[in-house]
Computed example of a mutant assay.
Amino acid sequence: MTNTIFFDNLIILSNRIMLAAKNLPSEFTTWNLKHKAPCGADWWVKFVNSQIRGHNFAWRNRYNLPSWLIRQIGPFGFQLNSLTRTFEYPWCFLATPLEPGMRVLEIGAGASGFQFVLADYGLDVTSVDPLINPSEQVDWIFSAKEFNHLNHSFGGKVKFIQNFLQNANLDSNHYDRIFSISAIEHIPPDDAIPLVQEIERLLKPGGCFITTIDLFLDCYPFENQVYNQYGANISIPSLIEQSGLKIKIGNPAELYGYTEFDAEKIRSRRDEFLVINNVMTQCIILEKLA
């Protein structure tokens, strides 16, 4: 493994994109194939999506599978993921230079494989998630026990804290990178502000917050309703202002809340962007200045 994991041309390529593009860069496709993202090995996806009796039982008990089988499925095969993740995972991974030994934090990862891939590349990974059952409609609860089994299966390198970030008592100025993949928009507005302020406290000077944020096409400013079942469109510039961080990568014309953002122009360009279930993906990098 070289000292620097990523090459400058990949970083430049990933940073040109603020709204996820419909056509994936070839580097993103290669990354997904290598890590079996975003849903695990192809045979596993076909297996759990089949209507054959007993397959649903296997999915519901996936956290208890033997470690050798878990590794065959791949780190992304244990959480239901939107297909927007075909873009989000490689973008977050390729967006900034990463080096072995860097301290990185992922917020709200759940059973996502991103944290395990980061650890496999030699990064010092901490994962923070309260692991609260997401809905009364689902019949499973992902607990610390299940997380620990997955973590052990993929090398046992991720340090897991079962809590909200604001209550995790982590050290200030400690992390080189903090990742949040399509999580902030699901948090109540009153909780999002202290969250991003805590992110600022935790980052080292010069450290980066790399995040993707859903843009809901069935909510304001595209439609009259403010909320859908997943959340609401949040003002990116307001969030940044509250955080104390500075935008490093981000195109105001493609980020909701900026005066340059025109909903009708975005709607007219819909065919250019990755749209899954009426959702686009906004990509930004924020930096903590010295």
Rank of each mutant, 00 (worst) to 15 (best):
T4P: 01
I5T: 07
I5Y: 02
F7T: 15
N9V: 03
L13P: 02
L13Y: 05
L13M: 09
S14I: 07
N15M: 11
L19C: 00
A20N: 08
K22M: 11
S26I: 15
S26L: 13
S26W: 08
T29A: 12
H35W: 15
H35Y: 15
K36V: 06
A37S: 14
P38T: 14
G40W: 04
D42W: 08
F47M: 13
F47H: 10
N56Y: 05
W59R: 12
W59D: 02
N64D: 12
S67I: 00
L69M: 11
I70H: 00
Q72R: 10
G74F: 04
P75N: 06
P75C: 04
S82Q: 10
T84F: 07
T84E: 06
F87A: 14
Y89E: 12
Y89H: 13
W91F: 15
C92M: 15
L94R: 09
T96E: 13
T96H: 08
P97K: 11
L98P: 00
E99W: 03
P100I: 06
M102F: 12
R103E: 10
G113M: 08
G113A: 10
Q115C: 08
Q115I: 06
Q115S: 14
A119H: 04
L123K: 05
D124H: 07
V125I: 06
V125D: 00
T126S: 05
T126F: 00
T126C: 06
S127D: 09
L131Y: 09
L131P: 01
P134M: 13
V138T: 12
V138E: 06
W140N: 11
I141Q: 11
F142R: 03
K145N: 08
F147N: 05
H149S: 02
S153L: 01
F154N: 01
G155Q: 05
K157G: 01
V158Y: 00
V158N: 01
F160S: 03
F160P: 02
I161K: 09
Q162M: 05
Q162F: 00
N163V: 05
L165P: 03
N167D: 13
H174I: 05
Y175S: 04
Y175T: 13
I178D: 01
I178G: 02
D191K: 15
A192P: 00
I193Y: 04
P194V: 05
I199C: 11
I199E: 12
E200M: 08
L202K: 04
L202E: 02
L202N: 03
L203D: 03
P205D: 12
P205V: 10
G207R: 03
C208N: 13
D214N: 15
D214E: 10
C219E: 01
F222A: 04
E223A: 10
N224D: 14
N228P: 02
N228T: 04
I234G: 01
I236V: 15
I236T: 12
E241L: 14
E241Q: 14
S243H: 11
G244D: 12
G244C: 07
I249T: 10
G250F: 01
A253V: 04
G257Q: 01
A263N: 05
S268H: 10
R270T: 07
L274E: 08
V279K: 11
Q282E: 09
C283N: 13
